[in-house]
Design a protein around this nucleic acid. Structure first.
Lengths: 259, 259
DNA sequence: CGCTAGGTTGAATACGCTCAAAGATCGTGG
DNA sequence: CCACGATCTTTGAGCGTATTCAACCTAGCG
């Protein structure tokens, strides 16, 4: 019986959100159980499906278990801005708990599987398992840092810098959940998605990708991105790892959030 | 004695953060006391002062009591992106609790006064006064909505749309704390700040302001912005009020965040 | 085979940038 | 009190990055 529990526990450790938080604060078995029990109802989606629609009301938080998605918003005339690229282990709807209505839409970029749990349960978690509360707070802070860096890209970086920076960000985020190699990763996005994420036109994304290619920095084949010159790419991007907060987490993280 | 308490209570209701949250969920006297007691040590700053410096470590959360500030980040070559415009009642450092080090700098745009409290106290508040916890969660969600809308501006709106949208956002935010009239408000920012916020050059901000002026939409005199044609400006901006979440808050806000 | 979605390339254009110089405003010190 | 410097705004001219429009190419799929 105990062995079964250990087995289940180990199995759960491979789910991306748990893996992410485990990498951060070395989850205890009961904590893994809690997270695993929290979000059980799995759901599958196809590419192009709308997980969340602007204006609709939602009471549950979604966790991406596998696959990629985007959160975006449309302007009246059809212009689209991609706000977040959602990877396995990411959560959607942390804020719907307070906003009555979704402010953005979420769409699957690939076949996708999700689990979900009621937003209300969050408060109980903060109360009973403060370390997990802390980890989720870390998640939220990190997401804001990513969003800020996104704003910097779109506001103040050139096209080539934007793409280089995005690729490095995605590489690091994927590495945290063991979904990327040292210098290679899946990149299941069209250039239209890249364009709408980085505030560029499709055509210019195409041209800029060629620049990156011809500079010997990256290579794309079949939805796979290979970074041929990591240092060179970091240089072009002006990439600073720190904002992702994924290395050498301070111990105070946990202690600070205990009341 | 009771009268003194009532007096103090009423006085505190004029502090911007309390006013903001009061407008939202009708704070009870003990809740006002809690918020007032939380943040007492006041501090004054001059225009140009650095409240927060990138890379430094902070354990306290700042509340802007009066004056304007900006949060920004610099690139290696000096390019600057303004991430947030901070108004009275805004909090700085909700995330420093988990990040070991500040990711952005904060600078006073005007003479400024702040109060502060230890980040740790937050957890106690969530526990003891869940309605305040809910209100602070609302604050965080709203800030992310503002940041998202900022990203949309910079990524997908034209220069004139960006400025129009920004002015309307600031107007609504100021109205919530009784610092703006129906169509007029203080705007103590230089065009350099507007440029770095909206991802434009100073020169182009100047030209775009002229457009807005010549279209009869706004008028600026002496750090005061008057919106001459509110409907017209909203039209240019494609402005949708909802993302600010400041009208008709759902009751579920509070109930949802209770555990 | 033909359709659709996605990617690439060229040509012309535009929006916004840089550079430069000239006003305007304000605080400060002579 | 005026002059000076500093900061901010405005305007012009030329340029450049990125856009739009359009055509063509490729791959996958029914």
């Amino acid at each position: 019986m105990d062995e079964l529990r250990m087995f289940l526990n180990d199995r759960d450790r491979h789910r991306p959100l748990i893996r992410k938080l485990d990498a951060l604060i070395d989850l205890e078995p009961p904590e893994v159980d809690c997270l695993a029990g929290l979000a059980q109802t799995e759901q599958s989606w196809s590419r192009g499906d709308a997980l969340i629609e602007t204006g609709q009301s939602y009471d549950e938080i979604l966790i991406i278990e596998a696959g990629w998605a985007i959160a975006y918003k449309l302007l009246a005339d059809g212009r689209r801005q991609v706000l977040r690229i959602l990877l396995p282990g990411d959560m959607v709807g942390l804020h719907f708990a307070v906003a009555d209505v979704a402010q953005a839409s979420v769409e699957a970029l690939t076949p996708l599987s999700t689990s979900r749990f009621p937003a209300q349960n969050l408060m109980g978690i903060y109360h009973n398992l403060p370390r997990i509360g802390a980890a989720i707070a870390w998640t939220a802070a990190r997401e804001e840092a990513i969003l800020s860096e996104h704003l910097i890209s779109v506001g103040r970086r050139t096209a080539i810098e934007r793409l280089a920076h995005l690729f490095l960000e995605l590489l690091r985020r994927l590495q945290l959940i063991d979904l990327a190699g040292q210098r290679t990763m899946a990149l299941p996005v069209t250039q239209a998605v890249l364009a709408d994420a980085m505030g560029l036109s499709i055509v210019h994304v195409s041209r800029t990708m060629r620049q990156l290619r011809q500079a010997g920095l990256v290579r794309m084949t079949d939805q796979q991105l290979e970074i041929q010159d990591l240092a060179g790419l970091q240089d072009v991007a002006g990439f600073e790892e720190e904002f992702l907060m994924q290395d050498g987490l301070p111990d105070k993280l946990v202690s600070r959030l205990r009341y």
